[in-house]
Amino acid sequence: MNCEMNELFGFAHLHKNFKPELARLVYKQDPDIVKNIATSEARKLHGMHRCVMREVHLKSGFIRFESSDHGMLYAKINLEHKTEDMLLQHFHNRFPLFHIVLEVKGVSWLINKSGVISKYNLSVLDLVKQLEIRLPKNELLCELDLGESGDDLWNKYYNSQYIGERRNLKLMKKMMPLKYREDGFETFNSRRCCKLSEFF
């Protein structure tokens, strides 16, 4: 039962509007009804859980990293909920050979190669600069650094994937809500976008 409840509500507490009273109320209701989301309170709490999961899921795909030759991948991002830890863990599992730094609202979060998370009241660029002095060069990231043409690679590739006959901005917008796209995201610069307003 606990396992089922966890699956339905487990991350609701990371939602920006989470209230402990709501969770207490839901956990007092008939479990057979609650685990099938058949009350409005259960639905609300489940909605919060899903919102959090959605942010983690979408951000896992939409965050774009800069790389430092000293073994760091870093990005400045916006988050609506308290999902820094989950995202850092996700990227640590993906890149255990590198340190990951994410800046959220002026605070930088670092997960090192051993998986330890620490918080710094510095911008990501300042933190990376300081760490670069102490960390050795990372061969792999040095080799993969393609300089300025690196960013062009993505733009060329991204633009090559579009099929004009299938144009469907409504679907694109639905799949990639504006609030989850970071500044400078590829779609903001799209050459095919006749009106910026089409994206909003």
Binding site: L171, K174, T187, R192
Partner: peptide, 20 residues
């Protein structure tokens, strides 16, 4: 840990083109 990359049980989308 001596690796780059991982797989995810649920697919992750990284962008969408204007065809959706």
């Amino acid at each position: 840990t001596d690796r780059v990359g991982n797989v995810a049980a649920g697919g992750i989308c990284h962008s969408f083109t204007e065809d959706g």
